[in-house]
């Protein structure tokens, strides 16, 4: 029988090496390898783990590999899986970082990147619209992303504060809601 740690490592390394775009692009591949091919976990468990990986902060692909590795073999398993996920991009980016600096001032490279930069902006505008759609903003919550974006863009507010405020705001909204329904129930009785 093959070593499970080695299997975890190579499986996640394959996933890390062949998915462009990270995160969501990796999920179907992880599912195929972990559920269908190796049968390490059931599909129901996979969906549960995905929900957890999504709700925790951090890199989705790393969260997912830590969860799967941990489920199979605890901490050692999660290390094997996560290092597998990270290693390909780490090595590739390191090589680029070392060599790219040397060709950065080359006029051909400079003109290529001059063309690429506005495209990168467009690549980030697109998910603004798609996440706005899936967040199901209503008339009240519509203002939140606008305030957040302006606060970070114009006032240099740290995104960390916006995240804390968002979580806190959701909690306060829940408390207020519960309090007001409690009051209206009481009022109804009296």
């Amino acid at each position: 029988m093959k070593n499970i740690y080695l299997q975890l490592f190579t499986t996640f390394m394959k996933i890390g090496a062949f998915t462009f775009g990270g995160g969501w692009a990796m999920i179907p591949l992880i599912e195929r390898e972990v559920v269908d091919k190796h049968k390490w976990i059931s599909r129901e468990d996979f969906i549960d783990e995905l929900a957890v990986a999504q709700s925790l902060p951090g890199i989705l692909a790393v969260n997912m590999s830590v969860l799967v590795g941990n489920k199979l073999r605890g901490l050692k398993g999660s290390l094997a899986a996560a290092i597998g996920t990270i290693l390909p991009s780490f090595v590739i980016i390191l090589l680029i970082a070392i060599f790219f600096v040397r060709i950065y001032d080359n006029p051909t490279v400079a003109s290529i990147f001059k063309g690429i930069r506005p495209a990168v902006v467009a690549l980030i505008v697109a998910p603004v619209l798609s996440t706005a759609k899936s967040a199901k903003l209503n008339r009240l919550t519509f203002a939140i992303p606008i305030v957040v974006a302006l606060a970070i863009w114009m006032c240099g507010v740290s995104p960390v504060w916006c995240i804390i405020a968002g979580g806190l705001g959701g909690y306060i909204h829940y408390i207020v809601n519960r309090y007001s329904t409690m009051c209206s129930k009481k009022g109804g009785k009296e």
Binding site: S55, R117, P118, V120, V121, I124, V125, P127, V128, T131, A132, A135, L137, T141, F142, I144, P145, I146, V147, V148, A149, L150, A151, I152, W153, P159, C162, I163, A165, G166, G167, L168, G169, G170, Y171, H173, Y174
Partner: peptide, 26 residues
Amino acid sequence: SIFKGLRPVVVGLIASAALLLMNREN
């Protein structure tokens, strides 16, 4: 409720990244 509060913030975070990149250098 906490995750519900985070959802619209995430939209704003991505928008701020896009806005900050719309500059002279790019």
